[in-house]
């Protein structure tokens, strides 16, 4: 049963010979190689090239090899430029659940880059994107996280978006969230999960 993921093999990389030139044009070609080990080299080394984020994002959409994907995402996170961040946001709209989750994990590591677009993400027309935006907030070390979450539970009409925000508020919230949680509980009075989750969050806030 092969269900334990292999980590990207840095040791393997060290022993593999390179067929492509190490300049940017060569790396761009190497990123499209049929050989996964060559794509790993390229995904790692493209970081210093112009248009690296665009090339990596394009490859990410088609990449099946987990170790290459991991290196692409690691390089995108290291780059953290506007193209990389917007590309990761687009991944949130993907039908590929693994890609969405990988994008969320990357975005959590880019608080300063993601913060300016968080209001837009939390107001996105697609409720799933709003849920993923709240998921990003889970580990986003940013001073506005609590106020963003309060804004969500005060204004979002979609029950699952609010439910995701409540889960997180119970962990990172303060007394400032109490009244908003009580209003939310009243707003979704016929949803058993929301009653359970708001009660739990209020209990946690009271204990803090």
């Amino acid at each position: 049963m092969a269900f334990i993921k292999k980590s990207p093999g840095s040791e393997t990389l060290a022993h593999e010979e390179r067929r492509f030139a190490r300049d940017c044009a060569g790396l761009a070609l190497e990123l499209e190689s049929a050989d996964a080990s060559e794509r790993r080299w390229a995904a790692r080394d493209l970081a210093d090239c112009p248009d690296a984020s665009a090339l990596l994002l394009s490859r990410l959409q088609r990449e099946d090899d987990a170790s290459v994907r991991e290196l692409i995402l690691s390089t995108l996170t290291r780059l953290g430029d506007e193209v990389a961040v917007l590309g990761l946001v687009n991944c949130l709209r993907s039908e590929n659940a693994a890609l969405r989750n990988e994008a969320i994990e990357c975005m959590k590591q880019l608080p300063d880059e993601v913060a300016p677009i968080m209001q837009c993400l939390l107001a996105d027309a697609d409720a799933d994107v709003r849920i993923f935006a709240v998921n990003v907030l889970e580990s986003l070390c940013h001073p506005e996280v609590e106020s963003w979450l309060i804004q969500v539970i005060e204004s979002d009409a979609q029950v699952n978006v609010c439910a995701t925000a409540v889960d997180l508020l119970g962990e990172v919230g303060s007394a400032a969230a109490r009244d908003a949680l009580l209003r939310l509980k009243a707003r979704f009075a016929d949803e058993p999960y929301m009653q359970f989750a708001t009660d739990l969050a209020l209990k946690r806030l009271a204990a803090n």
Partner: peptide
């Protein structure tokens, strides 16, 4: 659940 880190529900 469907959406989870590391390995999602489909996986």
């Amino acid at each position: 659940d469907v959406n989870m880190p590391k390995l999602d529900g489909y996986g």
